[in-house]
Design a binder for these strands. Structure first.
Lengths: 237, 237
DNA sequence: GAGTGGTCTAGACCACTTT
DNA sequence: AAGTGGTCTAGACCACTCA
């Protein structure tokens, strides 16, 4: 038969295998037919079968080993795509009014606090910014931002009263590595006042470090009132 | 010639292109040579070049359009990999002792609470479990779990005093879609007592729904004391 | 040793989009 | 109309690993 369904052959092979896994016909650890067998089943070349299986493997659905064959991946950790967007985009995507305010700006040699954030990587001047992002005129995110001026000298002259530093940095600076820590923390006195929440209220905090090669570029601490913000991720297989 | 560096040809092509992007030689929006040109540059077949470019496109590094060519992807949102693991694996990976305890188990028709969690998808019996996961004998995660027994009848007979429901479900049940919401919430009275924290303390809460086709399988609310738990993600390009 | 996946080739035809 | 990427083939040889 080979009722030519929609799309290319490799996609049809992927769909058929995924359907068998989803329906439980092939469960965790089950061995999938070899490339040669599938070549006969789908009446196509081995390269086409190989591409389908290779993509499923790169998506974590199956695990392949020479001689041992292809098996449905045993359950372990799963990788979930978590999309991180600029704060202004995040808010306007939700259909809210967005407003940004620069609360404080200070430039000077790296003090102990900055060195702690940067993990001892900064010796020269550091720019520290404190910003508030509003959604519908309510505080949505408090952004504390440290920028390593050794790595990004042009940030010293940038005007951050209109453009949030996150947006400016994404446009201006290439980066090679990033790290992000998501946690729940009680609001300290200063944070509570700026975010207009009770002292000790639950905040969702994202701390993000960004490097260019070995040099740290920036550290951001983004705090959100727990009552108004969450991260949502979806996945399917 | 073709100074055979390490690894297969397609990987070398990917590395070379990524290096040019990282070093800023090809910046956002820059057009990359066509497959035919790269075929000559790297002295290999077009399929090999195609594979390298296709993988870079699937990783979001480049964007490809027929006739228009291949370009370095313009900056937009970023995708971050967030790894989600079973709680027992999470704790033992950190080098801590793991202990699990079933606090409560109740079976009955879906009440208003369960229908709210399931988004009105459940009509029949529901199994509700409350579990505690300890790391080094300190409460690490409070798991409140609802299982739709219409979708998973065998869960009604499973023994959850030894095996955590998350582990059991991952092994027993295929799934097709999942949704996850990460938030910061204050500890309610019952949660505070079980987790041994102050009333109103900041909790990092993960709520996860899992479906098989259209039917909801399970809803889990996983609460962690903010002081002992965080999610960490890293990425590089 | 034999069977598995991993890579690669030198062609081919098609689909799409810009000119 | 021409040039780009998208897919596919029918082979080939290699690398790994289990029996």
């Amino acid at each position: 038969m080979s009722g030519r369904q929609a799309g290319p052959t490799y996609a049809r092979i992927k769909r058929d295998i995924l359907a068998k896994i989803r329906q439980g016909e092939w469960c965790d650890g089950h061995r999938i037919p070899s490339e040669m067998e599938l070549t006969r089943t789908f009446d196509c070349s081995r390269m086409t079968v190989h591409r389908a299986l290779r993509e499923l493997a790169s998506e974590g659905v199956v695990t392949r080993r020479r001689r041992a064959g292809t098996r449905v991946t045993l359950e372990g950790g799963r990788n979930v795509l978590l999309e991180i967007a600029r704060t202004d985009k995040l808010i306007t995507d939700l259909g809210h009014d967005y407003r940004y305010e620069l609360v404080a700006r200070a430039r000077g040699p790296a003090d102990a606090e900055a060195r702690a954030k940067f993990g001892s990587g900064a010796q020269g001047d550091v720019l520290k910014l404190v910003c508030l992002h509003y959604a519908n005129e309510k505080p949505f995110q408090l952004e504390e931002r440290w920028i390593n001026l050794e790595a990004v000298p042009s940030a010293g002259d940038a005007d951050f009263t209109k453009t949030p530093p996150g947006t400016w940095l994404l446009r201006a600076i290439p980066w090679s590595d990033a790290e992000q820590i998501i946690s729940a923390q009680p609001a300290a006195a200063g944070e509570a006042k700026l975010l207009d929440v009770e002292l000790g209220a639950a905040l969702l905090v994202i701390e993000r470090r960004t490097w260019l090669d070995r040099a740290i570029v920036t550290f951001a601490r983004l705090s959100h009132p727990g009552s108004v913000y969450h991260l949502k991720t979806t996945l399917s297989r």
